[in-house]
């Protein structure tokens, strides 16, 4: 079976795979992680705010997002957003949303649900004396969160946040349902064009594995360092 494999197809496709595919994958991962963290932190603050309605809204949102398969969300979101946009703006035709924008918004919304639970745990891990000390100095609630609680919560949770981002990095490959050329999409296109399925999918697996592995290793070292600081 391996006798007639042609690994040179990989070498020839490298520029396309990395400049087109991997660039897209990494951009989507980075932006989705950033957006998911900001949106997720807001959700976590809503849940911990003490305002029952805000907390309930955030809670329902998180549970809803976590109960759906990601592929389905990507798929539905891509086809629904133009119509929702039309309805919101009152336009005469469905508004056009590019595949990149659509997938980015989907990932931000989806990841926010997971990041919010991580940040919530992080905020709850801070002892109550910290916000008390901050308020005693005259800091407002917002300042207490921004300068005292969130930086500590973020730092304590950094390993978990990065681990979640590694999962996100792998999950971005699901954009294939929108025929987007991410790294896996690019590999898949070459594979089908040249009829080299085994080589290309094998190579894609190795690349995802290597990047995720290195990142996980980095997380472990980071964890050790944070443990020392505390």
């Amino acid at each position: 079976m391996f006798a007639n494999l042609d690994f040179d197809v990989i070498r020839r496709a490298l520029p396309y795979l990395f400049f087109e595919g991997m660039t897209f994958t990494l951009t989507l991962t980075a932006l989705a992680a950033l957006g998911g963290l900001v949106f997720g932190t807001a959700l976590a603050l809503m849940r911990l705010s003490g305002f029952k309605i805000l907390g309930r809204v955030a809670g329902v949102y998180v549970d809803f997002m976590r109960s759906l398969p990601l592929v389905l969300v990507i798929f539905w979101f891509y086809f629904l957003v133009p119509y929702i946009g039309q309805w919101v703006t009152g336009a005469s035709r469905p508004i056009s949303v590019g595949a990149f924008a659509s997938s980015l918004i989907t990932f931000i919304m989806f990841e926010a649900a997971y990041f919010s639970e991580i940040m919530r745990a992080g905020i709850q891990s801070i002892s109550r004396g910290q916000p008390a000390a901050a308020s005693a100095l005259g800091l407002t609630y917002a300042q207490t969160m921004r300068y005292v609680v969130l930086p500590q919560a973020f730092r304590n949770m950094l390993p978990v946040l990065i681990t979640q981002t590694i999962v996100l990095f792998q999950d971005t490959s699901l954009v294939y349902v929108l025929s987007i050329t991410d790294f896996l999409g690019a590999a898949s296109k070459v594979a089908q064009r040249d009829g080299r399925l085994v080589e290309m999918y094998l190579f894609a697996a190795v690349v995802y594995f290597t990047i995720s592995c290195i990142a996980s290793f980095g997380v472990r070292r980071l964890q050790a360092r944070i443990a020392i600081i505390r």
């Binding site: 002892s127 008390a132 000390a133 505390r230």
Partner: peptide, 21 residues
């Protein structure tokens, strides 16, 4: 205005509560 009032009242806690970061 509680923050303003508190800023004029110094408080020292049993467990110090310095900001570790």
């Amino acid at each position: 205005d509680l923050p303003k009032l508190r800023s004029r009242v110094g408080m020292v806690f049993q467990h110090f509560e310095l900001f570790p970061h």
